[in-house]
């Protein structure tokens, strides 16, 4: 059965703070979370829209060079942007693709943008990024548990 909530962690684990998305997924996997499916990938593609089928909510987690510290949390809407012309789509473009590939109405969507600083190949995440990640994990675990409680009510 499809879990109502999907968390997608985006990034390359070998590129410094780009690993924040996959690392968040690893840490969530160690938690006892109900009704949540975890997915990690290097980058978003149009077929990720199919992963959104039957979901109540999707959360995209990615490193960001633009967000405030330690992270930003914001709602996303489907958006026709020019990331369609790249090998990697933005989360908004994936939501936009939902209607095109049969998912029809995209689920509720949020972005967890974790502030990163360095993205060199072979580097480990820096200490500041790791602190941001810890804060993001704490926040997201609380959020997911709160949502699970509400579903049970």
């Amino acid at each position: 059965m499809t879990a109502p909530v999907l968390v997608i962690g985006i990034g390359n684990p070998s590129r410094g703070d780009d690993a924040l998305g996959p690392l968040l997924i690893e840490r969530l996997a160690a938690q006892d979370l109900c009704d949540v499916e975890l997915l990690t990938d290097f980058q978003l593609q149009v077929e990720h829209a199919l992963d959104l089928t039957g979901r109540d909510e999707v959360i995209f987690a990615d490193a960001s060079v633009e967000s405030a510290e330690p992270f930003e949390w914001r709602a996303l809407q489907a958006e026709h942007d020019l990331s369609h012309s790249s090998h990697a789509l933005s989360p908004q473009a994936v939501l936009d693709a939902c209607t095109r590939v049969g998912v029809m109405v995209p689920p509720l969507a949020n972005l967890l943008a974790i502030r990163g600083y360095g993205f060199e190949l072979g580097d480990a995440p820096c200490a500041a990024a790791d602190r941001n990640l810890c804060a993001a994990v704490d926040f997201l675990v609380g959020y997911l548990r709160m949502k699970a409680d509400r579903r049970q009510d």
Binding site: N12, Q43, D62, A63, S64, F119
Partner: peptide, 12 residues
């Protein structure tokens, strides 16, 4: 190359 795709990292 295998670039990073962090938000804000790929201006065109």
């Amino acid at each position: 190359s295998c670039a990073t795709h962090a938000l804000g990292k790929m201006p065109l």
